[in-house]
Structure formats: structure tokens, C-alpha cells
Design a protein around this nucleic acid. Sequence first.
DNA 1: ATTGATATTATGTATGCACATAATAAATTG
DNA 2: CAATTTATTATGTGCATACATAATATCAAT
Lengths: 233, 233
Amino acid sequence: MSTLENNSWQNIQGELSRRIIMRVWQPGEQIPNEADLAVEFGCARTTVNRAMRELANAGLVERRRKAGTRVALNPIRKATLEISITRQEVERRGAQYSHILLERQIKRPPRLISSQMKLVDKAKLLQLKTLHLADNQPFMYEDRWVNPDAAPEILQADLSEISANEWLVQNAPFSDGDISFFAINANKKEAENLAIDEGTAIFIIERMTKMGETAITLVKLAYAPGFKMHTTI
Amino acid sequence: MSTLENNSWQNIQGELSRRIIMRVWQPGEQIPNEADLAVEFGCARTTVNRAMRELANAGLVERRRKAGTRVALNPIRKATLEISITRQEVERRGAQYSHILLERQIKRPPRLISSQMKLVDKAKLLQLKTLHLADNQPFMYEDRWVNPDAAPEILQADLSEISANEWLVQNAPFSDGDISFFAINANKKEAENLAIDEGTAIFIIERMTKMGETAITLVKLAYAPGFKMHTTI
DNA sequence: ATTGATATTATGTATGCACATAATAAATTG
DNA sequence: CAATTTATTATGTGCATACATAATATCAAT
């Protein structure tokens, strides 16, 4: 097969990844340099470079200056999860969204929380407990701590109208954060709120967002049984 | 602050995302076009384009030809999960990896499985049940179906030496697949294998990989309690 | 006014060239 | 021969230019 006149970096990326996936180029093997490939494909080196760059951050190849490019030994595939706000998540399932603010108080958090958020021990936080509903059925129970220093206006916000989740997304920009996913047996409180039996396995997402070094919010989301997080690779 | 002589697309990306995060440019707001920004930053339009492109697939801005670029209304942050092989996952935790092949048989799968893999009903599959250990403690229990049409050599492979997981990664290239994450209460079999009580909440990853339209393998990974999947955004 | 053709505009891509940078290989020096 | 310096090489980036493409705006004709 002649690969000439496959200009456009997309086509070239396609052909390159085909060769890798079909093992034309074996894992660990060095592949031709950009200049040579440019000649083969009848295009500029820049174009090959663009295609290669995409392959590199897809994890299919590893590149090092002077050393060249080689097929990744164990191509670490990356799945990407979209972190959207709960209302959208519910509406995407074709259900009607609503939420109830169950608790709202300002107090000193447990040690575990303040250390996780790297706050001084005496700092007071806003604690919010919210139940998210899909078609009036419990969908997710949210237990959130907010650092009022990082987002003072939230103390005035009416969080029964707009959920804390949504308010923060719109009003409290964050630079980075981390997320954990795990499973737990529902405790009494969680079971009560989600209207399930105590001990039922529930899916948990724990997320902390920060602005630079300052923690903005730490939240634990407990999804009702049957929830599946899905994505493609 | 003069933003002149901030060449290099990284610096420009940094400055642009700073303006977005700091709400200099509000969500939904249209931002200056590439040509104007190129003038402001004293660089070529190509360079601004590069920076913008990165912001776009980070989900911070939305771009449309002629319409221009605007700050994303609800910046959908994407978390990326690295799908690595279990041995590496265990070793990264500083534990010693081992695995036991518990069952190996060729049979017709349940309807649910064959429909999920989009196979004809009468197709036979290789079923493999593997227990993965970290420092000789149960770490994860794997229940896997492999389509021998897609990877015939696996029938000859010695899967007590190298795990099916690892064998497939190295020998059966895939083009795409999908993953689900959820929580279940351990059934009798899972409890037994993971040495836990029946009903304990366990974290499940279900993954199917395909080569084009052909399903290669469908696997259900049941992680021992305490497992947390972690990433950053 | 609605429809349809045409111009305009911002982003998207390709190219040739130049130079920067990191890593390696080769050459030189003690 | 080991250690250090100096070339060499492949990727990384920036720029000017050109043209492609998609979406919108403008204008003409019915």
C-alpha cells in the first residue's frame, strides 16, 4: 500500500497508530525519525511532529530528544472522566433534577477533615449536607465542607435555590484538586438519606478542590445503589 | 502588568488560563481573537493558536470557526485515569505481586455476557478466574471472558506464569473499549476469594476491550476492601 | 419579508525555515 | 584510560505565510 499523499496530521496519526496497534512496529521498537516519515508521507516535518505529539500524550509512544521515538512498552491507556455538576448528570439521564439542603452549619471540622484540607486546627468551616434527587428519588447524598476564607460569598448564597455544588462551580474557581473513588457499606445516616438498607454497597466519590495551596472545598458524594460511572478508552 | 515578550506557548497558555480562572474573562464571555492576542503578546498567531488549542481540549474554552472563542460556561474538568496492569499497580504500592489462576475453562457464556460482547449465541469463550495478591494478601479478584477468535494464541499461553491481564496487554492489541466503575455487596464467591465477609462493599471495574467491532475480552475486577482509585484534576 | 447567493471572518491546518534544547556520540585532553 | 569537552542528532518550538473550512453577516432577487 502506498502511503503517499496522506497529508493532514489526522491521517498520519491514524496510519502511525495503525502500525503500532497492528504491531508493524513492535512495543519498545524505535520508529523512524520525523524527517524520514515526512519524506515517506510526502509532507512537512511539522505535520509529522503534530501527529506524533498526539500519539505521545495518548501514551502510545515515548519520545526523547536525540534518542528518538519508540513504541511504548506497556501502552498505559488513559480513561478520561468528565466531572460535571450533579444537575447535568441527572438531566442527561432524562430525569428531573431537584435537591434538598438538609443541614447547614458553621463549625470546627473533625481533625481528619482539617488535616486533609491542610487548615489550621481552629479554623471554622461551613458544612452542608445535600440530597440530590432524580425524579424525586434519592440519587446522591452529598456531605461537603467549604472553606469560607476561599469563597466568602457562599455564606450569603441561597443554597436551597442553587445547590452548593453548582454555586461553587460558578463562583469559586479552582486551579486543581484530587479525587478518590471507592466503595463502602452505607452507614445508618447514608442509608436513611438514600432510602436504602444499612450496609448496602454504595459508590463514593471524594473530591477536594484547591486554589493554589488553599483548600476550597472537600466533598464526599454517596451515590444511590445502581449508579455506574462509565467512560471509554 | 505588561504582558509583552511572553513568547512561548506555555507562558501564553498560563496567562490565558490565569485570566479565565481569575475571572478577568467571565464564563460565557467572548475572548479576543487569535490575531489580536498575538499582537498583545508580541508573538505569531500560530503560537496563540497552540496555547488556545490546549485550553480547548482541557475544556476551559469553547471554540468555533468564525464565531470565535468563549470561556466555557461550566468548565467540565476531566480527570484522567491510567489503566495499568495489576502487577504494576501492586508493585507501585511497594508490595510483592503474585497471582493464582483459579479456574480456566472453555464454554458458552451466559446470555448477558455474549450480548454485551456482541457475539453470536453459540460462540464459546475462554473463562479465566484469577486472584491477584499483594504481599500474599488478596488484592483483587478477576473474572474474565476472552474471545479466542480475537486472540487464538492465548489458548496455548501458560497463564499461571504470566497473568491473563498482562498476557493480553502484551499480545492482544485493542483499538478501543469501555469501562464502568461501581460498587456492589460481595457475593459468596467474591467474599471467599477475597477473604472477606459476604456483603462487604467492594469496588468493581468492568472493562471491555475491542479491536474494531470485535470484542476481545470482558473482565470484571473486584477489589479488596480499602482499595481507592485516585487521581488529580 | 423570505429565500438564496455572496462576502467576510475566526479558527484550522500545512509548509519552509530557523534556532533552541536535550541527549548521545565522538573527540580531545590530562 | 578516565574524564572532560565538543560535535552531532532528533525532537521541540517559533514565525511568516498561505490556503482551507465553517459559520455568520450582508446583500440581492423574487
